[in-house]
Simulated assay, not measured.
Amino acid sequence: MNPFDAPATVLDWFARIGTLIALGSWLTHVTRTRLRNRAVRRFFGGTEISLVLPLRTLQGRTAVAEPDYLAARTLETFLATRGIRCETRFVGPEEPLSLGPGGHLLICGPKSSADVAERMSRDPRLRFTHRADGWRIVTRDTGLSYRSRNDSTGEDSDIGYLSRTREAAVGGDRTVVTIAGVHAQGSAIVAAQLAGVRPIRGLLRRARGSGFSAVIGGSYAEHTLRVLDTAELGFFRHPDR
């Protein structure tokens, strides 16, 4: 063997090992990305979903509240990174939702849609209730009440409702994810909490194939309408069917 060939042989083996390591890293990255995308798509019900926003009467004209718009854009941007396309539509207070099979994301509360109010009234674990001091989210079994600090102390803070259900529909099953703030800012807070693979995986793991409801809280900057922090305040798995 030519002694000058030895360094070349060693370098060739190092190059091969480096290629194998790079290939292994790429395969690991691709596998992880696919698993993450699959979890998000499973959570929201597919690769194409409908995103429903409520129309409100603001200063004498019909419009979408800014926090609802922020919530929609936050999740739409996140879902696009996971290969999910949102088709946005708007509903008035008395307009029927008309949910078919597939995935549906409702960013709408009981005050803005009669159909959403009816759907939320069937939640087995949580309910929205109105009292003299404002709206609250209350557990059905224990009566534990969640109140927005915006109402109790005037802080730039709010809470919101999150639920996910799987339902039978004409033509196939549907997945419905519902977000509703006690105030409109609560919707943006829930959306910010949900816009990540890790929280979605955690919710799916704890739900164990069933539906669930949750209460999310957080704070926001009022003038720039920016969510500052979020936290899960309560998680409630629905009974098995």
Rank of each mutant, 00 (worst) to 15 (best):
P3H: 10
F4L: 11
D5G: 00
D5T: 13
P7H: 07
A8Q: 12
T9C: 02
T9N: 02
R16M: 07
I17Y: 12
I21Y: 04
G24A: 14
H29C: 00
T31Q: 09
R32L: 14
R32E: 12
R34A: 07
R34E: 11
N37S: 14
R38N: 13
F43M: 05
F43L: 02
F44E: 02
G45M: 09
G45W: 05
T47L: 00
E48C: 07
P54K: 13
T57H: 09
T57S: 12
L58Q: 13
Q59S: 14
G60E: 06
G60H: 04
T62D: 06
V64G: 03
D68R: 01
Y69S: 11
R73S: 13
L75V: 11
L75R: 09
E76F: 04
E76W: 04
T77K: 11
L79Y: 05
I84L: 07
R85I: 12
C86E: 04
E87D: 11
T88M: 10
F90H: 13
S98N: 14
P101R: 15
G103E: 09
I107T: 12
K111N: 00
A117C: 03
M120C: 06
R122N: 11
R122M: 10
R122P: 01
R125H: 03
T129G: 03
T129Y: 07
R131G: 15
R131H: 14
G134F: 13
V138W: 01
T139R: 15
R140N: 06
R140L: 14
D141L: 05
S145T: 15
Y146G: 02
R147E: 15
S148N: 02
S148D: 01
N150K: 14
N150M: 12
N150G: 15
D151C: 02
T153D: 15
D158A: 09
I159W: 02
G160T: 06
G160K: 05
G160L: 06
L162M: 01
E167F: 04
A169T: 08
V170C: 02
V170E: 15
G171M: 06
G171R: 07
R174A: 05
T175H: 15
G181R: 07
A184Y: 00
G186W: 09
G186Y: 09
G186V: 12
S187D: 10
A188E: 07
I189E: 01
V190S: 06
A192F: 01
Q193A: 15
L194M: 03
L194S: 04
L194V: 04
A195F: 05
R201H: 01
G202D: 15
L204H: 00
R206H: 12
A207H: 07
S210H: 14
I216S: 07
G217I: 10
G217F: 09
G218V: 12
Y220P: 08
A221G: 03
E222M: 12
T224I: 14
L228K: 08
L228F: 00
A231Y: 01
E232T: 13
F236D: 01
F236I: 02
R237S: 08
R237M: 00
P239L: 05
D240P: 00
D240G: 02
